[in-house]
Structure formats: C-alpha cells, structure tokens
Write a protein that binds this DNA or RNA. Structure first.
Lengths: 334, 334
DNA sequence: CTGTTAGCGCTTTCAT
DNA sequence: ATGAAAGCGCTAACAG
C-alpha cells in the first residue's frame, strides 16, 4: 500500500531540484557526472518509475506507441507484438497493443480517439490495418508518425518494412529444383496482396534461371486461406503433368495441400513435396514433411519500431531510410 | 494536424463550465437532462476524447487496466486478449497488454514499474503469471485489485476465474464411452497444474459412473508439451490392453499422439480415437479426426475483466462473488 | 551546469 | 444542479 514515489521524493533524497532529476530521467546533457550518479542512486533506492501521465501532459512526448492489428493469425500477431515490444523495451517506451476491426465504419474515429486519449508518439500498423484507407487518411491528417509492417500494397507511400518476397520465393523454388523437382505446382496468394505477385515472380525467376519452362497449368490462384489451398491442391494433383512438388504462397494454403495429400494416401515427401511460408509452426509439428520459408515477422516488427522511433525523434530530416527491406531467411528444409 | 480538443473546447461549445462537462463524462448524477444533452452533442461535434493522462493525474482512476501474460501459446494469448478487450471496450477502459518473463529476477519490479508508470486501476494475470509468487506478492503489497485467469494452483487465494475441469474431462470421457470405447488411455498434465489432477479426476469419475474399472496402466504422466505426448503415446500403444482411444490432457500432447499414430500407420478414428483440449485450432484443421474440449478461454478472460471492474468499483464490500467458474462447453465431436 | 516558474487537461473539494 | 479554485507529477521556457 506504499504510495508511489514522485520526482519530488527523488529530488529530496538526492538533494537536488526536480528539474535536475528530470534532466537525468530524460538523459539530457549538461548534468555533472557525480550529480547524475547521485540522482540515479536515489531513483534506484526509491524504485522510482515516472508517471507517464504527468510526462505526457507536461511534455510533447508520451513515451508510448500503439501497435494496431486486426484478425491475422494469432501466431502472426504474437510475433509482431514480440518484435515491437522488444524494441520498445530497449527504448523505455510503452507499447499499447490495440485490436481493431478494419471492417468497422468507425475505425478511423477509434484510432483518432486512441491517439487523443493516450497521446501516443507514433503508431505501428500491421496487416490488414496497413491497407485500411480510413485509418491511413486519419493518420496522415493528424501528421502523426507511423510505420507499416508488410503492407499489402503501396510500399513506398509511407514508411514501411517488409521482407523480400521475390527473393524468398526464388530461394524456395531453387531449393525444390535442387532437390530434383522439375514439375513444381504453385498456388498464388490473394490478389489484393502485393506479396502474391512478388512471390509468383520469384517462382518464375527461379524456374527461368534453371532453364525450366513456365507452365501456366501448374499455377493455381488462391486466397491465402485453408479452403483455397484444398481447391488448388485437388486441381493441381489432377493436372496431366502432375507436379512432384507444390509450393503454396502461404501456410494456410499449404495446410490445405497437406490435408488433400493425406486424404489421397500420398506419402510425403516421396510422392509429393509440399512447401510454403511458415506463420504457424504447428503445421510443421503435426506434419513434419513440409518445407517452409520462415517469415522474419518478429524482426520486421522490431525494425518497424526502430524506424518509428527514428521518425519520432525527427531523424528523417537527415535523409531517413524510409524503406527497410528485411531479407527472408533462406529456405529451411524439414 | 488539427490540435486535440480539450474539455475547455467542449465547455465553450456547450456553454457550460468544464466541471459540468466532467460530470457528463463521468456519468455523475445531478446534471439536468437537457444540459447533459447539450454537452454530449458538443462532445460528439468536436469528437472529443478525454486525455487519459490528465484524468489519471487528477483523479483516482486511470481508466486503464493491464493484462499480463507470458509464453503461453499464441492462440491462448490471443483468446485472452480478445476476451479482456471485449469487456474493456464496453466499459470504456483501455487494456494494456503486457508481456512479461516469469523467469526474470526483476519481474516484480517490472510489474511495479508498470503500475507506477501507467497508474492502472487493476491487473489481470494470465497463466503462468498467475502463479508467479513475486508478482503476487508485489500486487498484494500494493493492494491493487487483480484477478487471475485459470491459475495453476490456489484458486481460492485471490479472485480468479477458471473452468470446471473435472466436468470437462468427465464430459469428454463420457463421450468416448458413448462412442463404444471401453479401453481409454489417459495422459495426465503437468503435475504443477491443478487442472491436471482435476482432469484426471473427471476421467475417473466418468469411468466409474459407466461401471468401467480404472486401470492404472492406461494412465500415463505428461508435461503438457508435444514431446511428452509422443512418449506417452508410444507407451500406451504398446500396453498389453491396447487402448482404442487416447485422451490427452491438453492439445500439445494430443498432437504428439497424432504424430505417433501417423508414424505407426494407424487410421483415425477407426484404429484409434484421439481426444484432447483445444487451444490451437490448427491441430484440428490439419488432422481432423481429433475430438476436443473447447476451452472457454475468451469467456474466462471476459469474466475476469468483469470481475476486476467490480473490484475496482469497490463492489466487493457487498459480498462479491470471488470465485467464478465457467463451465467448459460440452465435448465437441469432430 | 542547475534552479524557478508556469502550465499541460483533467478531477477534486468546496461554494453557491 | 452548477461553478471556481487548487493541484496531480511532470516538462518547457527561462533564468542564473
């Protein structure tokens, strides 16, 4: 039931004014080393944690940022939260993880309300909020710094971080080719996502380099969900030149392929190699013969927070790198 | 770039004093209906969102609560966040989702720092933070209201919400018996978790009621993880009276059983029925022949937030129900 | 390098 | 039923 210690308590204990404590807290220059140490010792002794409320109210920084997300897979959301949180922790900044509903009429108002209520210094958007026009407009209107993680489209519009999807798909396809596959099926992702065409491009580029002809019948559209993976698998497995490997543009669809393969009594990977992107480790756990590209989601999120802090600190005036591309880790064989 | 609207702007627009706006905001009594309406109209027109920083600083409530969690499965964390958030939303309270590391030496200090920094009105603990002694002690010391979701032990120590594990395991076992199974293997959970013995008890109670003798050889210890599921499955499947069904105390272990069954070429559910608790829907997706108890995680979290608000509002003085038990939904056949 | 004085936007307490 | 004044714990803008 001890009352919280304030900056006054620290100042008294250290025998300085509160302004000096404030200086130490904010790592301002012009504090003598021994003064700083005295203050730091007092802070520690009193286990002082400054009130964010008071800081937000008095200063121009709240030391808080918000991470806004919507219904992506729990694994994805978890990885994003972890990455952002890791960087926030280093920076002594609080992360406000905010669920949102991109389909809601009021989403822009809610984001606006969040900003007004919490005074957050900046915002990180994760998919699919990255492509929610009302939110983007609201943020732009307010001029609040924000960074998008793997936006589905328009990478260059604003600051964003994303992995090199072309290279990742190329890596995976090359891996399959090196395994001896020559007839490789491909399931394209949802047409609204930029990643979809990029992954398709990577697939084609790898085939091309290996001197394998591109065969349209081996490429099937998909929607990034389990059901479309099932449909695509059925179709591809009944194609005259039946593929010995199927590469799905994400792991929900890959799971669909696995299920179909299982139902047809195929042995993996002898009868069929299945490859995908790895959002949900459990798919591997339950059914190991799956080769995946591990998406660097956590690292992307970390990088996003990092980029955001630079913007908040106004680093952009000295030629900020607005586009940060994180290479996917190389294809990982099971 | 529009500046935020403050309570002063609203007061001016409505032609009242800021105190009256404050009254409306806090739903205090003694505001004439037409005055209230005027104020509410002004709030809406200015899309006013009160600064939580100012409210926290001036008042005794911050209108924020924290949800603290550590490494449980992303699915679990996601469900918990969703449930808590849903209730917070209704109450106009902000949820601060906070990752923590129960193994860290400094976890109590970090939680204390969180409380001091954010002025949160209360805290929700999810497993395994529910059973982290330093955190519990710190919370107790500060006298801050908190609620635990499915604590591993000591349910009655403090306010907590949890499902009826005995009944759930009984339901599932009964379901298997109704399916015709008479030799049912059981994999016990981690010994540190109260749920483990409760589920075992439910299993035994159902057998008992059906007049089936309890057979110790059909019960194998486990640790709630994939690997121990694999070990247990191997053991159970080589038991002289080989079980026709295996009921695992959680789904990670059930996944282990599935993998073993697969590797032995068993057809499910003809050769073996596998049952478990459902934290991670993907297990079902990839390999449908699995029967699960759906844990009401989201509802528990919702109930936890609800209980916390009652404590924050001081309802406990009038005989608060400190223990809230949410029944598991009935066993769901695949 | 350090201290003093004003507030930030609200809620509280006390008037009326 | 409504308002006026004080102040929460900090930072900003000045002094020195």
């Amino acid at each position: 039931m001890t009352a919280r210690n304030t900056i006054n308590d620290v100042a008294r204990a250290a025998g300085v004014s509160i302004k000096t404590v404030s200086r130490v807290l904010n790592k301002e220059r012009y504090v003598r080393a021994d003064t700083r140490e005295k203050v730091e010792a007092a802070m520690l002794a009193l286990s002082f944690s400054p009130s964010l409320a008071a800081r937000s109210l008095a200063g121009k920084r709240s030391h808080q940022i918000a991470l806004i997300y919507d219904n992506h897979s729990p694994y994805y959301i978890h990885a994003v939260q972890e990455g952002v949180w890791a960087r926030c922790r280093e920076a002594g900044v609080r992360m406000l993880a905010q669920p949102a509903d991109v389909a809601s009429e009021t989403i822009a108002a809610e984001v606006g309300g969040l900003i007004d209520e919490t005074h957050v210094d900046g915002i990180i958007l994760s998919s699919p909020v990255t492509d929610c026009a009302p939110v983007l407009a609201e943020l732009e209107r307010r001029g609040i710094p924000f960074v998008r993680i793997s936006p589905g489209t328009n990478h260059a519009l604003t600051s964003s971080v994303y992995m090199d999807d072309v290279q990742a798909a190329d890596d995976m396809t090359t891996h399959l080719i090196n395994l001896g596959h020559r007839v490789i099926g491909f399931i394209v992702g949802h047409p609204n996502h930029m990643a979809s065409e990029q992954r398709l491009f990577g697939y084609r580029r790898a085939l091309d380099r290996a001197g394998i002809d591109y065969e349209p019948g081996l490429v099937h559209p998909g929607e990034f969900d389990f059901a479309s993976g099932v449909v695509a698998a059925h179709s591809l497995l009944s194609y005259p030149r039946r593929p010995t490997a199927i590469f799905a543009s994400n792991d929900d669809m890959a799971a669909g392929v696995l299920t179909v393969a299982h139902s047809k009594g195929l042995t993996l990977p002898d009868d069929l190699s299945v490859a995908g992107f790895d959002d949900t480790p459990l798919a591997q756990l339950v059914w190991p013969p799956l080769t995946t590209i591990r998406q660097p989601t956590r690292d992307l999120a970390f990088a996003a927070a990092n980029l955001l802090f630079e913007k908040v600190d106004g680093v952009e005036h000295r030629r900020l790198q607005h586009e940060l591309v994180v290479r996917a880790s190389t294809a990982r064989a099971s």
